[in-house]
Simulated assay, not measured.
Amino acid sequence: MTENTIRVVIPLTVRRKNGRPKILPPADHGPAEARAQDAHVLRAIARAWNWRRKLERGEASTIADIAKADRVSDQYVGRTMRLAYLAPDVLEKLLIHRTPPSLSLNELVTASDLPWSDQLAAVFAISNDEK
């Protein structure tokens, strides 16, 4: 190996399961599900921002136009679009840090009605001291 080579060692275990090899993480490594962001939340936020941009650019004039184009109900579009107005701190934790919310998607939509100063505590179930 040359001087410029970096060697990375990851302690993994390979086990056979149902005749196929399966790579197992180290024992001290927590389950991936506990750290993973819900794909439905990320997808809903992305759709909300896409719909908001369409309205702002004039590509769609009403929520009904968006609903018709995406083959969903206008109530669904109106409710989901509220996610585009979440507080910047909440969006940063959800999208950049991939912190899973302590709320369901429907409760997250409802939390978007709160003032920005209250959303972080509501979405991630933290006290004002921890902010």
Rank of each mutant, 00 (worst) to 15 (best):
S117P: 01
R20C: 01
A125K: 07
A87V: 07
P101T: 12
A69V: 09
D74W: 12
M81Q: 05
L24I: 09
T5F: 12
G58N: 10
E107H: 03
L94D: 02
L120I: 10
D70S: 10
P11M: 11
V41D: 03
R52K: 15
T99I: 03
E107S: 06
L95F: 00
N106E: 13
R20S: 12
P11I: 06
Q75R: 15
L91Q: 09
A32P: 07
S117E: 10
K22C: 12
T2W: 00
R16T: 13
I126T: 06
R57K: 07
I66Q: 06
A121G: 11
A67G: 00
R20E: 15
E59Y: 14
P21Y: 12
I45D: 01
R43H: 11
P88M: 03
T5D: 09
A48H: 02
Q119L: 05
A39G: 12
L12Q: 15
D89N: 11
E59M: 08
R15N: 09
S61E: 14
Q37A: 14
L86Q: 04
A36Q: 15
P21K: 15
A122T: 02
I10F: 09
A44L: 05
R53V: 09
A46C: 08
V90S: 02
D89P: 00
E3H: 09
N128D: 10
L103Y: 08
I63M: 11
K54F: 02
E3C: 01
D38T: 04
P21D: 14
D65I: 00
V41H: 04
D129G: 01
A111N: 04
M81G: 06
W116N: 08
A121S: 07
P26H: 14
W116G: 02
A32K: 14
P21T: 14
E92R: 14
I66C: 07
H40E: 04
A32I: 12
A34H: 03
M1R: 04
L94V: 10
A32Y: 07
D70C: 08
R43A: 15
R53K: 13
V109I: 15
N18S: 14
A64G: 14
W51E: 08
A46I: 03
K54R: 14
A67I: 06
A39H: 13
R52E: 15
L95W: 00
E92I: 05
A111Q: 06
P88A: 13
E59D: 15
A125R: 02
H97E: 10
R98N: 08
I10M: 14
P21E: 14
T13A: 13
A64Q: 13
E92S: 11
R15I: 11
R57D: 08
P11G: 06
D113W: 01
A125C: 04
L94A: 00
K68T: 02
V77F: 11
P11D: 13
R53N: 13
N50L: 07
A84N: 03
E33Y: 11
L105W: 04
I45H: 03
A64M: 04
L12R: 13
D118C: 09
R7L: 07
E56H: 05
S102G: 15
K54V: 00
E59G: 13
H40P: 00
L103I: 09
R16G: 07
A44R: 09
P100D: 05
E33H: 11
Y85V: 05
A44I: 06
F124I: 04
T110S: 03
